[in-house]
């Protein structure tokens, strides 16, 4: 398989921070808003560089979303920053009416997504955000996998006109994608071609999927790994082409099974190409406190679980023949 080397673990939120700073340099209309989490979102460099284009709104996320929508009326490109829980569930109706339905060029940027925010626990572990955001018409939903990709995605969304939900995380995580790669919104990224099973992963789970791919390879199984960094618009063609080749699928995401990446794949396969499928996701339960790696293991999102899911769908595929 293609080898991916971790160039040094970094948090994806720092990729966002660097991307935002660069976007600010490239386009004077880029502005940033934050709800009292500037350091956590790594927006401090932008604030320092462009103090007149940074708006501290305090702990008032609903107001932040409305202000951001208003700033687009005046040609600004606002990036709002807070944790995924406060960026979505807390302000769903504000996003729905003032951003999505009004089709405003607001970038809702969310850190501390998924289980891996760790010790803060379930109050902060929003595992429904991708589902909520992908259900909104007009909304583009992006969940990059590492520091480099998050930085590139941040730059890409600054050039895209329309509402975006950009999701990233807290922990230091392997950084392995090409730093020179351009980010194409809506385009699935082939990480490793294979023939026996398709593993579709998003966010931090792409690295886990690559680890699983390696383990499967050692067992003589050829796994295809595809990075679905854009949950919406969904790259139907890439997913279908892969499953038509391999005949079975595994999805892997740090999100609730309901409404997430696996849900999008299952809907597509049910319509176009029914095939055995397993979903690595949190299943209808809240998270809890713990270290990121402990949590991934406790909720069945670690490498051995992805390997087991792959073997299971391959067996189901064989049984159905």
């Amino acid at each position: 398989m293609k080898e991916y080397i971790n160039s040094g673990s970094k948090d994806t939120r720092s990729g966002f921070g660097e991307g935002l700073l660069e976007a600010g340099r490239q386009n004077p209309d880029v502005v940033a808003l934050c709800a009292d989490l500037t350091g956590s979102l790594k927006m401090d460099a932008f604030e320092k560089q462009f103090p007149d284009r940074f708006v501290q709104v305090g702990i008032a996320e609903a107001n932040m979303v409305g202000i951001a929508a208003g700033m687009t009326i005046g040609g600004k490109i606002p990036f709002t920053g807070t944790f995924a829980n406060f960026a979505t569930g807390r302000v769903y109706d504000q996003i729905r009416q003032s951003v999505a339905y009004s089709n405003k060029n607001v970038k809702i940027c969310a850190s501390h997504a998924g289980l891996t925010l760790g010790e803060d626990g379930a109050t902060h572990q929003n595992l429904e955000d991708l589902g909520m955001m992908k259900m909104l018409p007009n909304m583009t939903v992006i969940n990059p996998c590492d520091f480099n990709q998050t930085k590139a995605a941040t730059l890409a969304v600054s050039r895209y006109n329309g509402p975006v939900y950009l999701r990233f995380g807290r922990p230091k995580w392997p950084n392995f994608t090409d730093p020179a790669a351009t980010f194409e919104i809506g385009k699935a990224l082939m990480m490793n071609p294979g023939s026996d099973v398709s593993i579709f992963a998003t966010g931090h789970m792409v690295w886990i999927a690559l680890e699983a791919c390696k383990a499967l390879g050692e067992m003589g199984v050829s796994a295809e790994v595809i990075d679905i960094h854009t949950i919406k618009p969904f790259d139907n063609e890439a997913v279908l082409a892969s499953v038509m080749k391999t005949g079975c699928a595994v999805s892997a995401e740090e999100h609730m099974r309901n409404g997430g990446l696996g849900d999008s794949i299952a809907q597509l396969l049910a319509r176009e190409f029914p095939a055995p499928m397993e979903m690595i996701a949190v299943n209808d339960t809240f998270g809890e406190s713990g270290k990121p790696e402990e949590l991934l293991k406790a909720y069945g999102l670690d490498t051995p679980n992805v390997v087991a899911a792959a073997l299971k769908v391959i067996q189901r595929k064989k049984n159905s023949r």
Binding site: G66, I73, G74, S98, K104
Partner: peptide, 19 residues
């Protein structure tokens, strides 16, 4: 801007004023 779900317009107006 779309409005109807109440309570959002003043924030939007502030955003436009800041811009």
């Amino acid at each position: 801007i779309s409005s109807g779900s109440l309570g959002q317009g003043l924030s939007v107006a502030i955003g436009a004023a800041l811009a």
